[in-house]
Design a protein around this nucleic acid. Sequence first.
DNA 1: ACCCCACATAATGTCGACATTCGACAGTTG
DNA 2: CAACTGTCGAATGTCGACATTATGTGGGGT
Lengths: 214, 214
Amino acid sequence: MAIERSTYKDHVIKHIYNGLQENRFRAGEKILESHLAKDLGISRAPIREAMADMVSAGLLEYRPQVGNFVAALSAKEIIDSYVARGVLEGFAISQGINNFSNKDLLRLEEMAHQMEQFARQDQRKALIDIGQEFHEELFRHCTNSQVVLFTKQLSLKLHLLFYKHWANVYTPEEIRDRHLEIIAMIRKKDPVKLEQLIRQHYIDTGHKIVEQEN
Amino acid sequence: MAIERSTYKDHVIKHIYNGLQENRFRAGEKILESHLAKDLGISRAPIREAMADMVSAGLLEYRPQVGNFVAALSAKEIIDSYVARGVLEGFAISQGINNFSNKDLLRLEEMAHQMEQFARQDQRKALIDIGQEFHEELFRHCTNSQVVLFTKQLSLKLHLLFYKHWANVYTPEEIRDRHLEIIAMIRKKDPVKLEQLIRQHYIDTGHKIVEQEN
DNA sequence: ACCCCACATAATGTCGACATTCGACAGTTG
DNA sequence: CAACTGTCGAATGTCGACATTATGTGGGGT
């Protein structure tokens, strides 16, 4: 199976990421450069670059002179990642708390209700997509490039876990209420409590995910 | 000039990092793979890997099909980075606020006074070293691997700026007092105010650095 | 039976060369 | 004179092969 055009590295990254999502690469497993090279019909050079990228994104782990392995997150690492995300996202959103118009908030509320519907109908992809959209909307007013960067990194990593376990983490009603709670707190214009709330939200989610992993 | 042994990538990274610190590579400048390869007497492969690493660390910027450039941080990006560091470090230290023994704190206070002395005597390297030690000590009780990782990334990047401007940022007394202030707040066991204080500390520093850059 | 060591295998690390693409300059045209 | 276009040099992207190192295996010794 060959690849079409432009820089190969991005294609390789996508290929591996899809593999992770579809569980074709299992946690802890070693990924051979030569296998990917043969599968994709290209040389090892772009594959090495792609894997190096994914190592820095935390999706793979690298042992010198040995190779790359699918990152096997321990329970603590999963929780740590969710906590870190809560810290960053809590700050980001609280900082822009006054930039949300009533129209923005109404739209967010509508999205929360849509998420409930999708969850109820087991439409995983639609739910994940609108969930991402929701968070992007919350982040829209964060202009701190560094915070945005870190958060995106974490998103990429945690997305895989959430994609796998979402159905067993929250009920449709909980999904709706948890998001509505955040919106309500934005309305109250209390940045400190909002930050706490968002942190707690991610702490809870992290623990729930860990329960599912075991 | 040749390199000695073990995986070349790390040597190359160190070489570039030193070059940045000594200002042999100036901001915005393009770094040619072939030049480094010739200078270090090795092939381009390990150099490409090293540069890719430094891109993900934020020290270099990469434009596909064009090359790698020394990251030219805008004023806003500098401030953003300091703010982000304040957020992370504020959280990390506050979380471990109860793990500091009185002995720890006395040691930290001593370090603050040493920093004042070194600053007064223009001993840049000694000051920077003990400053790093101070922060590592504060971080010692943070077990969140993800937060630690992000903070290290930021450290690496901001270190270069601080190394360049430290002398014009704070007076020796200010350096001492700012650090003592943090220790005093740890003593008060007020995590919320401690977090605020640390954030403010980095916000101030960021602004001072930006003033120096222009 | 267990441990140690040497060897074979296979993967990563590195290399030099080729293919492709970007950026600059010169020449042309309106 | 300005703007566009074609050409050329140089740097990056990719390749296949070789060098080096980790891992597993089997034989020999205790």
